[in-house]
Amino acid sequence: MDAALTVMDELTTEDIEIRLLLEALYRRYHYDFRNYAQASIKRRLRQARQQLGVATFSALQDRLLHDPEAASRVVRLLTVQVSDFFRDPGYFRAIREKVVPHLKTYPSLKVWIAGCSAGEELHSFAILFREEGLEDRTLFYATDINQSALDAAAQGIYPISRLQAFTENHRLSGGRSSLSDYYTTGYGGAVFDKSLRERVVFSDHSLVTDAVFSEMHLISCRNVMIYFDRQLQDRALGLFSDSLIRNGFLGLGSKESLRFSARADDFVDFVKDEKIYQRRMA
């Protein structure tokens, strides 16, 4: 009998399996997670492994390659995100108090909510822009790679159990109206008024593989790039940089930073504590 091969130690077996699985997902279905931050993707793939009842990542890969429905389930699991209305009220207060006065100087506006998941942030912006009198001149782009999240965003229905936190966040953000003006309740859900979505284009767009599609005055992309590795983060930031008008605004999540990015020089701090940046003049 042959002796067993020596295990070379550089990558663990699991890490090799995960790389191969992500490659398979890309080759077969064109979903590209190869440059996602490893630690979180591994955690989510462990959940997928458990949900599909397979023992190893190799077995999971086998399943994904031969079973498109299982693949779709796993892609959903890898791309699902949950946010809140007016998450980090200080961010929205800074948009309202510091960014809106600049936006008011433009006759028309384009705003991109990149990685909009189920639409919590989009609705927050739509309400804020209505309160600040900017809604009529604004076109919103809400993009995500998760189609069921986009569908949910376009429906604008959220569990009533979340309304209390949403309402409190809206108030803390300096809201000038009552959140209850914007929804009706029934069947356990709060349905947000469809007029909030009249000026919204929902679109399947990937920060990993897709290109610039319009010229923006404001891009909000919060807690999306925390799931990317640095290389992919740089790609996304390059996309934002190329999409923004001169002096356009970019808002990130409260613990995200341009400090560690190769594209840091494209932007200057605008509201430092709230991670709002401005596109540098060319």
Partner: peptide
């Protein structure tokens, strides 16, 4: 989270 390249990453999972 800690990445294998010894950087920190955050998640809102």
């Amino acid at each position: 989270l800690i990445e294998t390249d010894r950087t920190l990453s955050l998640s809102t999972d």
